[in-house]
Amino acid sequence: MPLDPSDEPARLAELKGYGVLDTPNEAEFDAIVREAATALGVPIALISLIDENRQWFKARVGLAPQETPRSISFCTHAIRGPDVFVVNDAKADPRFSENPLVTGDPNIRFYAGAPLRTTSGKRIGTLCVIDRTARAQLTEQDTARLTLLAEKTMQALERRRQRLNAADAA
């Protein structure tokens, strides 16, 4: 199910309501991407949040940039659906074969992203894993692990928002 463009303002409002964009690294989120990279045996894992024009990385392992343009992001595709979005070989996929993230650094070949869903169902980003070599389809176990880690990410974002709201109320 594609994202409804008329819902984009509400999705962005929910994302901004977390007060997380452009904040420093936090150990809880860094631990989640390390766990994802290790569990799925990939060199790159990200917590990617999609705003109007970019994907911004709250946590990342194996990738230096803090953000990339939304227009070239794989995660923009991943938030269009409710389940894990997988690209087994980006070089062979016509949607991505000319993407600068495929043709240049970081040379993405494999991508899997689990949407980060708010309690109201808005998809604000992904927990994703990336490899520089093509891979076969994710196993059922890997899909479940990625989904579970995305849920863990949302729980951490909710706790973070509650702390911010409590601090604002004090």
Rank of each mutant, 00 (worst) to 15 (best):
V84Q: 06
F85T: 10
V86H: 10
V86T: 15
V86Y: 11
V87L: 13
N88D: 15
D89G: 13
D89S: 11
D89I: 12
D89W: 12
D89F: 09
A90T: 07
A90L: 06
K91C: 13
K91Q: 15
K91M: 15
K91E: 14
A92E: 12
A92D: 10
A92W: 06
D93G: 04
D93T: 07
P94G: 05
P94H: 01
P94M: 07
P94W: 03
R95E: 08
R95L: 10
F96H: 01
F96K: 03
F96I: 00
F96Q: 03
F96N: 04
S97V: 08
S97W: 05
S97I: 02
S97T: 11
S97F: 11
S97R: 12
E98P: 01
E98Q: 14
N99K: 01
N99V: 04
N99T: 02
P100L: 05
P100M: 09
L101I: 08
L101T: 06
V102Y: 08
V102A: 08
T103W: 06
T103N: 02
T103S: 07
G104P: 04
G104F: 06
D105N: 09
P106E: 01
P106Q: 02
N107C: 12
N107I: 07
N107Q: 13
R109A: 11
R109Y: 05
R109F: 01
F110Y: 00
F110N: 00
F110E: 00
F110I: 00
Y111V: 06
Y111H: 05
Y111Q: 06
Y111G: 04
A112R: 00
A112S: 03
A112E: 03
A112I: 03
A112C: 05
G113A: 02
G113Y: 00
A114V: 03
A114P: 04
A114F: 03
P115W: 03
P115N: 09
L116M: 13
L116S: 10
L116F: 09
L116R: 08
R117K: 15
R117C: 14
T118R: 04
T118W: 04
T118S: 10
T118N: 07
T118P: 07
T119W: 12
T119N: 14
T119I: 14
S120A: 15
S120W: 12
S120V: 12
G121Q: 10
K122M: 15
K122Q: 15
K122P: 11
K122F: 15
K122V: 14
R123G: 14
R123F: 13
R123T: 12
R123H: 15
R123A: 13
